[in-house]
Amino acid sequence: MSDPLAGCRQLLRVLAPDWASTTGELQRFARAAVEGDWQPVGEAIPVSLGRNGLAWGLGLHPASDTGPHKAEGDGRAPAGVFAITALFGSADADSDFARAARLPYLAATPDLKAIDDPQSQHYNRIVDQRTVDKDWSSCEDMLRTDERYTVGAVIAHNTTPPQPGAGSCIFLHVWENPGAPTAGCTAGALADIRDICLWLDAAASPCLVQLPQAEYAQLRSAWQLP
C-alpha cells in the first residue's frame, strides 16, 4: 500500500513531538485533485491526545513493526492514516448543524451507544441499543452531560473488520479543558472542532494523519504527505 491517501482530498494532519506526547497540533489541508499538491486551510490549532500518548493503530496505512501498537484501554491515540466517516453531536437530526453537515450525521440520544466491549458482536460500532441485541458489558454514552461530545467526527480505526481488543470508539471531539489528555481520542476547543466538522466533506474522502514528528518526517515522501 504505497499511497494510503489515495482518493483523499481533505486531510487533518496531527503532529505530536513524540510517542509519549499528550498534546499536538492539528492543521487542515486540501487539494483540488487526488494527485494535486496539498494546500493548508486555516490556522493550526492545539489538540489533546491520549493520556499515554500515541500508538500505531489499524487504518489505511501499512503495518509497522516499530513503535507501540494500540490496544483497548491503553490510553493511547492511534497513529497512522484513517478515514473520517461520520459526524455526531447533541444537535437534533433536523438542526441547522445537521443540515449543513456533509458527512453522515448521528444525532445523540440516550440510546446511542459506542461499544467498547471486545466480546460484543457490536465492538467498535455506534449503535442504537433499541435496535440491536444487547450483548455488551461496557459502552460509552454518546449523549453526555458535559461538552465533550457536543460535536465530533468518527475516526475509522480498527474497522475492517474490527479486531477484538485492538482499540475502539476513536473520535475527534471537544476537549475537557485546554491540554487535558483523553482516553485515546483527539480533542480540541469546541469552536475549532465544530468548524472542522462542518468543513469535512464525504465527496473529498477526508482522512486523519496522526503521527509523532520523527515518523512523519520519515514517511512523508512515501505516503505523499504535505
Results as ranks from 00 to 15, higher is better:
residue 137 S to R: 08
residue 83 A to T: 12
residue 137 S to V: 04
residue 150 T to F: 03
residue 96 D to M: 06
residue 129 Q to F: 02
residue 100 A to W: 09
residue 81 V to C: 08
residue 95 S to W: 09
residue 100 A to F: 08
residue 94 D to I: 15
residue 144 R to M: 03
residue 96 D to Y: 04
residue 150 T to W: 03
residue 117 D to K: 04
residue 152 G to T: 00
residue 138 S to A: 08
residue 102 R to F: 11
residue 130 R to V: 03
residue 141 D to K: 00
residue 80 G to C: 10
residue 112 L to G: 10
residue 137 S to Q: 06
residue 105 Y to W: 14
residue 129 Q to K: 06
residue 102 R to I: 11
residue 79 A to N: 07
residue 114 A to F: 01
residue 127 V to G: 01
residue 133 D to V: 14
residue 124 N to A: 03
residue 118 P to L: 06
residue 104 P to E: 15
residue 114 A to R: 02
residue 109 T to R: 11
residue 97 F to Q: 12
residue 129 Q to M: 06
residue 97 F to V: 15
residue 116 D to I: 06
residue 119 Q to E: 12
residue 80 G to V: 10
residue 84 I to Q: 12
residue 151 V to Q: 06
residue 140 E to S: 01
residue 122 H to N: 03
residue 118 P to D: 08
residue 148 R to F: 00
residue 140 E to P: 01
residue 108 A to L: 12
residue 124 N to E: 03
residue 107 A to K: 11
residue 84 I to M: 14
residue 117 D to T: 04
residue 89 G to W: 08
residue 74 D to Q: 13
residue 91 A to R: 13
residue 137 S to F: 02
residue 107 A to I: 12
residue 149 Y to P: 00
residue 96 D to N: 09
residue 103 L to T: 14
residue 123 Y to Q: 09
residue 81 V to G: 05
residue 76 R to I: 11
residue 138 S to W: 05
residue 79 A to Y: 07
residue 124 N to C: 03
residue 78 P to T: 02
residue 91 A to H: 15
residue 129 Q to Y: 03
residue 118 P to E: 07
residue 92 D to L: 15
residue 108 A to Q: 12
residue 145 T to D: 07
residue 93 A to C: 13
residue 134 K to G: 02
residue 99 R to E: 03
residue 150 T to P: 01
residue 92 D to C: 14
residue 87 L to K: 13
residue 72 E to A: 10
residue 148 R to V: 00
residue 135 D to E: 08
residue 116 D to T: 05
residue 90 S to N: 12
residue 93 A to Y: 14
residue 72 E to G: 10
residue 88 F to A: 10
residue 79 A to H: 07
